[in-house]
Amino acid sequence: MLAPKKFKHRKQHKGRIHGNAKGGSSLAFGAYGLKALTPNRVTARQIEAARRAITRHLRRQGKVWIRIFPDVPVTSKPLEVRQGKGKGSPEYWAARVKPGRIMFELDGCSPEMAREALALAAMKLPVKTKFVSRVGMDQEAA
């Protein structure tokens, strides 16, 4: 699973996700991509599940790029513990995803295969998504 190698602070504020993506909203590497349409925190485990769904569907033939990185530590308190007594311990890492962000990119496969693979990946993610491709590539495929 993805996680930072080192970090400055163990715990962060929760924060809120406002607005749309300012960058990373167009395809940079592959021919096809999966774009987020709603904001949410995507955990490292969800990213890994989505990546695994893609590679399994492509039978490890295409090339996959992950355009988000889980760099936000999320804490939680243990079960059956009263409120107070400080912040909980870090449990997992998450990426803050804004609408418009390209999360995964694909190349080296047919558009139909890419669409299917990214649909499977989308099922593992907590955000609404849409399939995107380079301008003019969908028409060529059709």
């Binding site: 699973m1 243990p78 079960l79």
Partner: peptide, 28 residues
């Protein structure tokens, strides 16, 4: 497939985290 290659890393990681969670619960 999970047992081979990259899948194996994930499986180990999940197992290890699960173990920690149980300990924490027990401690409370």
């Amino acid at each position: 497939e999970g047992a081979e290659g990259e899948g194996a890393e994930g499986a180990e990681g999940e197992g290890a985290e699960g173990g920690e969670g149980e300990k924490a619960e027990g401690g409370d």
